[in-house]
Design a protein around this nucleic acid. Structure first.
Lengths: 327, 327
DNA sequence: CTGAAAGCGCTTACAG
DNA sequence: CTGAAAGCGCTTACAG
């Protein structure tokens, strides 16, 4: 039998009421210094910790944020995870990590989030059906789509201004004198991949530059093998690759084929993950300002958790081009 | 006001008692098919989810595993995280992600774990003072040090057999005909780095091969800059680098200096992270069998959570050498 | 198999 | 500022 030390035990030892013990641990409650001292001494002696579950049960709110993530292989996401965790820690919130293997978040994961009555939810690179998203709305649990946009205007989303970023990438590549280009898509179901394509091809069309689209899956392997396929047929003057990890695969494929970058062709990625700056790659890319994106997400969630309104908005941050050696 | 749907609401609609509703959601309880049907229909209509907090309060056990992690930059750890999450999900456990920036787990994080009354704790690349570790013992919360050993025999730890692995790496390098070697340490406070050094240098000493030790910090940057420093003075016939991510830095530093691998010198890493197999690196390394390590950890935790004994053991798994192009 | 009731460890009006 | 008491949403003996 596990003997848990409760507020009652502490109260007994300290010679005060259980309510007073509770007040010591509840920020904002009124307790005298004297009582506080007695209670803390007794608590230290017994090794008391307020039970977060009992607390949550009575306040009907938790200090848990559900963070849903899929692509742990892409260094972008672990970084997002650690930044969220660090930021929420400042506010006393903990992160429940939900990992989906599937593209779409599974029912059992949704159950978990609902059962734990999480204070808020962040969806990163997974998708969520509108029906499921609505069930969070019904429970007044604020939800943010991070780095993904959603079709309807019913939810809050934070992402990079992909449209503008990819337009500027197209202009940048155009200025370098390209004549034929390739857009290498990630998972085409994602808004991320689609928007980056849209902005890029829009500018190219304006300038009558031919381009071809290939599809892959946002992974290194995908980038590598697709690039190998592509160069069998043609060598475009530049590749715009939907994210960095794929772009690294493209670079390695080109290197294997003896194709020099940036002399023979050019490559631009998206994300600015740490590895893109490594000497072996030196990838030109678009930096997503994770800090800002995290901050906007946390601020929204904090506000909604304090006072739920269900407010929806599509927030976009700009970011900037990081020019390195592949262009 | 948030209106939570409770078992009572469901009971009313279904025309049964609240206890019956409870029984439907508690696996193992006896309920008739008829009652179950009525309850599930009512629950679906109302959108009911059993409150995990109330449940935990009464059973005095949670389904939350605290996972403490520091080095999210090293791809080894995100992989560990996702494997643990996937494995525990099978058993109905969720993962509370605790990220420390500091080497040692901070007090507030310990508080969090204790407050949430987690069912078990996994410490990966962070350290934990014995005093703190004991407080988990006092609360009968099973604890595993993952990929780290602890000085005393009071705790369960799961790691690779670093001693044997590094001995075999030394022998392997010796067979390649090296005459002077370098061991590039990670954080020297870690058992991981120290053991890898010990096994490696033991064999070298036996064969009267000179070696030199340099210290770094288990990061890519650390490996890169330290290697640059090293080759200013000498070019050893081989580097044994305490983990892969540092070894990748070493390879990039050598490449920058025009030093050919494996012709001019050789490099061996440790972990076998995904990137080590990428064409740009093709690093020879020691594969840590994450699957086995995770499995042993989960099995132990599951057993202890069912029936706490406080059993301590140091478990080691073997792994194997992956020979690629850097040797 | 089912219901009424006690109780998990807290917070929070309510009096004083 | 403090204590006695109600109650959060469940599980679980206890009867029937």
């Amino acid at each position: 039998m596990k003997k848990t030390v409760t507020a009652k035990d502490v109260a007994k030892l300290a010679g005060v009421s259980q309510s007073s013990v509770s007040r010591v641990y509840f920020t904002g409650a009124a307790v005298s210094e004297k009582t506080k001292k007695k209670v803390l001494a007794a608590a230290a002696e017994l090794g008391y910790h307020p039970n977060e579950f009992a607390r949550s049960l009575i306040t009907n709110r938790t200090k848990i944020i559900g963070l849903v993530m899929k692509g742990v292989q892409n260094p972008f996401y672990p970084q997002v995870l650690s930044q969220f965790t660090a930021e929420f820690k400042k506010w006393g919130y903990s992160v429940l990590f939900v990992h989906t293997n599937n593209e779409e978040i599974q029912n059992e994961d949704v159950e978990t989030l609902l059962n734990y009555n999480v204070a808020g939810v962040i969806i990163t690179d997974a998708t969520m059906s509108l029906k499921v998203a609505k069930s969070f709305k019904n429970n007044e649990i604020p939800l943010v789509f991070f780095n993904r946009k959603i079709h309807t205007n019913d939810f809050y989303s934070v992402s990079c201004n992909n449209l503008n970023a990819s337009r500027r990438i197209a202009e940048f590549l155009l200025a370098k004198g390209g004549t034929s280009m390739v857009y290498l898509a990630g998972n085409e179901q994602t808004s991320t991949s689609r928007e980056r394509e849209e902005g890029f091809t829009e500018i190219l069309s304006d300038h009558n530059i031919s381009y071809k689209k290939y599809s892959s899956d946002f992974t290194y392997e995908g980038g590598y093998h697709t690039a190998l396929e592509i160069v069998k047929h043609q060598l475009p003057s530049a590749f715009f690759v939907a994210n960095d990890i794929m772009a690294l695969g493209v670079l390695d494929a080109l290197r294997k084929k003896g194709i020099r970058v940036p002399e023979d062709t050019k490559v631009v990625g998206f994300d600015n993950i740490e590895m893109s700056g490594w000497p072996a790659y030196q990838l030109t890319t678009w930096e997503q300002p994770i800090n800002q994106m995290v901050e906007k997400t946390v601020n929204y969630l904090l506000k909604e958790m304090a006072n739920y309104t269900g407010m929806a908005r599509t927030v976009e941050v700009e970011g900037s081009l990081i020019e390195r050696k592949t262009t």
